Simulated assay, not measured.
Amino acid sequence: MSLSLTGIGLVHPNGQRALSQVTLAADDGERVAIIGPSGAGKTTLMRVAAASLRPTEGRVQLLGINPWQLGARALRRLRARIGVVHQAPPIPPQLRVVTAILAGRLGTWSAWKAFMSLIYPADIAGARDALARLDLADRLFERCDRLSGGQLQRVGIARVLYQGPELMLADEPVSALDPALADAAVGKLIAQSERTGATLVASLHAVDLALKWFPRIVGMRGGEVLFDAPAGKVTREMLVELYATEGSVLPTQGNDPGTLSLSPDAFAGVRSARVVPLVRPGCR
């Protein structure tokens, strides 16, 4: 099993509870989408799953290992097997795109190879191939501070594709992309999972993308799991309850802000993962 979180709770130093008794497991090669309103705890849960945040309560197993029982060196080796796509990629602005992509394998390279790659990129062809999958090959030697937010998100995705990890965690990976690019980028993550057998867990703001691409949907609200079901069994009623605090709107990968009224007609097709494009009436 790639990911096993059992009874996870997390309380911030200020006393605010972010997660409460969250249990989530993902088998090898499984693809799971986490959806829910803002403040549901999705990002916090993803940080726990990436072993970058230690929970206050519960048990964490990543790739069969409890990360919090490891020494510093073993923990770095474990993290090298996990690829994380951030909503805002932590890429130094002056870095060239090729170097940012190659950083995906720093955890498996020797210190000498990593240092030399800063002087002359160690695998230009590999970085170009990863970028080409996201239609950014022409930006290979561009400085990252000259890219748009959406382009930086695609660079972050390309870095994980180049890394080739066993477990991929994507936290709102396409929030800065237009609908067509977002759909294509999520498709690339899915294709990587299918090709390599890597597990993919993604938190997504856009419900339509989650239903289209992921066989399993986890709904979170208030730091708790509200439901965990196959996409084909996610009903209108479940989504209405999940987003009840969002002012009666359903987030989709549309424009400004990409929401859809929670009316019965709007959810008429939300019974199967194949019926996906939840767009506003009149939009194409």
Score class of each variant (00 low, 15 high):
L62W: 11
A244N: 11
G247W: 10
L152H: 01
V48R: 09
D183V: 04
G269K: 09
P89S: 11
W109T: 00
L24F: 04
L189Y: 05
L189D: 03
L75C: 04
A125Q: 15
A111W: 14
L102I: 15
A191S: 14
G15M: 06
C144F: 04
A88K: 11
G269M: 12
I82D: 11
L106A: 12
I190T: 05
T56A: 13
L136T: 06
V218I: 15
D171I: 04
V234D: 07
D28Y: 11
V97I: 11
A273M: 08
A180M: 09
W109F: 13
L147V: 01
L45I: 04
G149L: 08
D138I: 04
R216P: 00
A266F: 01
L242P: 08
Q94R: 14
V249R: 15
L106T: 05
G232E: 13
R17L: 02
P13Q: 00
P121Y: 03
A229P: 03
A158N: 01
S263I: 12
R195A: 15
G71M: 07
G107T: 06
V84L: 14
I119E: 02
M46W: 06
L161K: 02
L147H: 02
R154P: 00
G41W: 11
R73M: 09
P264E: 12
R76M: 07
A72H: 13
A111I: 14
G282L: 06
L152S: 01
D27H: 14
G39F: 10
M238C: 06
Q163P: 04
F141D: 15
A111T: 10
V160K: 00
D265E: 15
W68D: 01
D171Y: 09
V276F: 14
L242R: 07
